[in-house]
């Protein structure tokens, strides 16, 4: 734990992420404005004191929309990571331990991996309607195979370890084996993978929004806000710039966190300097 806290990447990542989370949680008091309120007389205003980030084509405040959008985008990132990890962990554990299931599951995973993730996601959303749930599921599904592969590879490696064989010889039953010896080994790589999934989910959310296949237009997310700025980017680049910058900082901080965790948690690196 101390090693994690002392890691530079983790420190920077945590600090930046905390900043973004605070602005999202405290969006109403900071922005002081309803992200949906239209002021047609103020449309496409460049950043001024009243609208620090400017306004869009309906005169809606970009600051308010960016901060409120952060709530949606961050939630999507977290929820996708949670869904993908939970599904991947369950399937991966079974695949790693039950030979017969393994072959079938891995073929299905290979098939899903062959379908480009964004295509699958936009197709799923287009055909089932854009809601928070469908967006989260649609972004999570293509991520699952990689988590399954990760968990499975850890399980396959761990079950060959002499200490696991010793536990088998000492009469440990399968559930105990999984919980005591296998599961703890999957946690570190899963946490690391989870941070990467979370970061990539936020990028995918913005792309879906940009393509018009993301969250419904009345819900501001970073992707949606940027999508609306597309047409006007030559005369009003701030509509694209500010949410883009927030997204970039958030993804950067989550990735830094992931890199830092990987460097401190990866047993191969850890063993080397003990």
């Amino acid at each position: 734990m101390n090693a994690i806290r002392r890691n530079r990447s983790v420190q920077i990542g945590m600090a930046l992420l905390a900043l973004v989370v605070v602005t999202a949680v405290l969006a109403p008091p900071i922005a002081g404005m309803d992200p949906l309120r239209m002021t047609p007389e103020d449309r496409l205003t460049s950043p001024v004191a009243a609208h620090p980030f400017g306004t869009d084509m309906f005169g809606r405040d970009i600051l308010a929309r960016t901060l409120h959008g952060g709530r949606i985008s961050l939630s999507v990132g977290l929820m996708v990571a949670a869904v993908a990890l939970a599904a991947g962990l369950g399937i991966g554990l079974v695949a790693g331990y039950v030979r017969g299931v393994d072959r079938i599951v891995m073929r299905v995973m290979d098939g899903i991996m062959a379908i480009p993730g964004i295509l699958l996601a936009i197709a799923l959303i287009a055909l089932s309607g854009a809601t928070l749930t469908t967006v989260v599921v649609a972004i999570a599904v293509p991520e699952v195979p990689r988590v399954v592969r990760l968990v499975r590879s850890v399980v396959l490696a761990v079950r060959e370890e002499p200490y696991v064989e010793a536990a088998v010889a000492a009469g440990a039953r399968l559930p105990r084996l999984l919980v005591r010896h296998v599961l703890p080994n999957t946690l570190a790589p899963l946490i690391v993978q989870g941070s990467y999934v979370c970061a990539s989910a936020m990028i995918v959310e913005s792309i879906l929004g940009f393509l018009g296949a993301g969250m419904p237009p009345e819900v501001p997310s970073w992707g949606n806000v940027m999508a609306e700025g597309r047409t006007f980017f030559q005369i009003a680049p701030w509509i694209l710039f500010f949410p883009g910058a927030f997204l970039a900082v958030t993804v950067l901080s989550v990735n830094l966190l992931g890199d830092g965790l990987r460097d401190t948690l990866d047993p191969r690196l850890r063993g080397r300097f003990q």
Binding site: I115, P116, L119, I122, V204
Partner: peptide, 30 residues
């Protein structure tokens, strides 16, 4: 797989009449 996603977006940004644009148009038209 990542490249395909990027192609879809890039073709939309740069208005390139490729498969990516066709994808987006088809999705919007169901």
């Amino acid at each position: 797989a990542l490249l395909v996603g990027g192609v879809v977006v890039t073709e939309s940004v740069f208005n390139i009449p490729g498969l990516g644009r066709l994808t987006v148009d088809s999705v919007l038209r169901r």
